[in-house]
Design a protein around this nucleic acid. Structure first.
Lengths: 110, 110
DNA sequence: GAAAAAAATCTACAGTGCAAGAAAACGATG
DNA sequence: CATCGTTTTCTTGCACTGTAGATTTTTTTC
């Protein structure tokens, strides 16, 4: 039955999978978060979260082809499913709704 | 040192405390969530979360006056602190930033 | 002062966040 | 072809967050 929301970190990782498209695999996601969001993340934290998201059906994966440059294990590429996208939409809707309730939050963004 | 974000449920409860102002106590928060957000919540889940938020300094509490109608223990009224408000702002900023990264999310809201 | 009401508190366990370390798969190089 | 450095995934374990069940406290009414 899956709950109607995700944890904070799960939401972040799911969003990155959607954002990175064909290039969504553990290491790249980690890097992207660190450079673009200036937030420290642990690589295995990302991996574990990817497994959990896949279990829940929000993303799916396939092992990437042999397009490696200099050694290294094959990448496991993740893509967001329609269910995953729907979940992100729901969470966004819910947040926008919530924020409306608290006037002190009005500011720059939006 | 407190992390730079909260869990999903903590965020919800913190927002409700901010929204309900002088009327933020366990039972009222629970009711408000059920009626306005159509989401089932357990009363003690709310209470436990309130304690944790208070521990972290995002809300503070005082026992309410004797303005009761028909029996019942005194309410513990919670109010959001400036730290709590700042946390909500940060989380909102971060989300807006995140959503920008994933075009498939563009829609109604905002 | 016993019963009923309203609310808070306690206890306990599953789910999520996170990190340290191990293992796998690959290219290069002697 | 053995082994070395690389790149990346996989395993394990524990602390923190989400949630429910049952209990206790405080207060009004009869």
């Amino acid at each position: 039955m899956g709950k109607e929301y995700l944890g904070e970190f799960e939401e972040l990782i799911l969003t990155m999978v959607g954002a990175l498209q064909e290039d969504a695999y553990g290491a790249a996601i980690t890097e992207e978060i660190e450079t673009r969001l200036k937030r420290e993340v642990n690589l295995s934290a990302v991996h574990v979260t990817l497994y959990r998201l896949e279990d829940k059906g929000y993303i799916k994966s396939k092992v990437g082809g042999a397009t490696n440059e200099r050694g290294g294990r094959r990448k496991r590429i993740y893509t967001i499913t329609s269910g995953g996208l729907a979940m992100l939409r729901n969470m966004k809707e819910a947040r926008l709704e919530l924020w409306k309730m608290i006037p002190q939050l009005k500011m720059s963004g939006q």
